[in-house]
Design a protein around this nucleic acid. Structure first.
Lengths: 111, 111
DNA sequence: ACAAAACTCAACCAGAAGGTTGAATATGGA
DNA sequence: TCCATATTCAACCTTCTGGTTGAGTTTTGT
């Protein structure tokens, strides 16, 4: 199970609602750490830790530019976990071909 | 976020390699608790706890017949989590409402 | 009726998780 | 140069997690 370690870190990163909320925020745009922290009722240090966990799981990348660390979603990291889940077979319903047709119909630009 | 609680429990259930291994075993067939425990180098009580966690997450069901408790995979419980993940991995730029309409049209049963 | 089988429960333990606060470290702007 | 901004680090605390063992419960087989 070479993938076990990364599935551990990805799934446990996703198990926390604060971290899932952060990922959702980053879906819209890259953000600085301070801005990520703003809507949460917890310290900046706590958010910094959460971002570290997301980073180590590969779910985001952090790019320090000057004194600002920009956080960027890395959705590819979800792929292994997603594939693992799909192996349970009940999601053929979300037919991949249909998915792609849907994508093409929804996305103005390329994939 | 009404789904947050269940995403918490599903993702944290999936975060443990023992529990993922159990799910894989149950993919092949329903199993008794003792048989689930057999390949693992830990006590039956520990496996019993793991099964409880999987059960509470909805990922398996347990049906006691006589003195044997049969464990059965319930892969539907993965659907919400899978959908949540796919919304990152594949659909960054996609309109979420349309995405949900698509899912409703593709999934065989209700939401 | 009794013993073994199949679990589950309860108490316990070590270590990890998630939060706090206060200090440290760059960097940017005046 | 000096202060504020942006972020991380370190120490600490509490709660959760994943394991243990030993006892308890129910059911089955003889």
């Amino acid at each position: 199970m070479l993938e076990s370690k990364s599935l551990d870190t990805v799934f446990s990163a996703l198990a926390d609602p604060t971290r899932r909320a952060i990922l959702s925020m980053l879906l819209e745009d890259d953000m600085a750490v301070t801005d990520v922290a703003e809507p949460f009722a917890m310290s900046l240090a706590a958010i910094s830790k959460h971002l570290g966990i997301l980073s180590r799981a590969g779910l985001i990348s952090q790019d320090r530019r000057g004194r600002v660390t920009w956080c960027k979603l890395e959705p590819d990291a979800l792929r292994d976990a997603s594939i693992w889940m799909q192996s349970f077979g009940q999601f053929e319903a979300v037919n991949l071909d249909a998915f792609e047709r849907f994508l093409r119909s929804e996305l103005p630009d390329d994939a």
